[in-house]
């Protein structure tokens, strides 16, 4: 089983200590999964950080990895919120080449994206844009013909809408798999 699945957005509340990131990353590394985006920062609770990461993988392996994550001593809570109603944002800084001729055109183009110009130089300009990955990609594509010098994207940060904190992994396990007639769904493991 390899990373030929879909995007999964996982959020985790973790203790703010050295090595936490390595532990979390290690659980995906050993399964040959790539973390395609990662964002970490302080949470509302002192000493705890929130991580949002996006991994590509099949449902079974991501579920397994998520439960293993929950076992890490430094992980307080973890949830795969891919199927939840979520708000998610990324931020990107795009440094684009400008000339006196193109400056106006770029400014006009940036406007509908509610992006901001955060630095203006004689021959370049830095644009800050926030939104979904698709929105950032769309702006990037528009700017590309002008010559993008640098693109810097944060990882995705995500939050479940409403009062819920997201389906935590404990509840995920407590779900009753009550289909009595469906026995023994197979997960093959490799042998020598």
């Amino acid at each position: 089983m390899n990373g030929n699945g879909r995007h999964h957005t996982i959020i985790a509340l973790v203790h703010d200590r050295p090595g936490v990131l390595t532990r979390v990353a290690g659980l995906f590394r050993r399964r040959g999964f790539n973390i395609s985006s990662l964002a970490v920062g302080n949470s509302e609770q002192e000493g705890l950080s929130r991580m949002t990461f996006v991994v590509d993988g099949d449902q079974y392996t991501v579920d397994q990895a998520t439960r293993q994550l929950d076992k890490l001593i430094e992980v307080v809570k973890v949830a795969n919120i891919s199927d939840e109603e979520i708000v998610s944002r990324e931020l990107a800084l795009i440094k684009v080449k400008v000339t006196p001729e193109t400056r106006g055109e770029i400014l006009e183009m940036v406007h509908p994206f509610r992006a901001e110009i955060v630095d203006v130089g004689a021959r370049s300009m830095v644009i800050e844009v926030t939104g979904s990955g698709d929105k950032i990609q769309a702006l990037y594509s528009l700017l590309e013909p002008f010559g993008v010098l640098e693109l810097m994207r944060t990882g995705r940060v995500a939050m479940v809408r409403g009062l819920s904190e997201g389906r935590v992994s404990d509840e995920l396990v407590l779900d009753y798999h009550g289909d009595h007639l469906k026995v023994n769904e197979a997960y093959e493991v490799g042998s020598y």
């Binding site: 579920d63 397994q64 439960r67 293993q68 929950d70 076992k71 992994s169 404990d170 396990v173 009753y176 798999h177 009550g178 289909d179 009595h180 469906k182 026995v183 023994n184 769904e185 997960y187 493991v189």
Partner: peptide, 24 residues
Amino acid sequence: APNARVVHVDVDPSEFHKNVKATV
């Protein structure tokens, strides 16, 4: 165990459905 339902009792929740799907 092709004919069996599975009651899986464990202290480690990551063992459930890891290799064999538990009925309960």
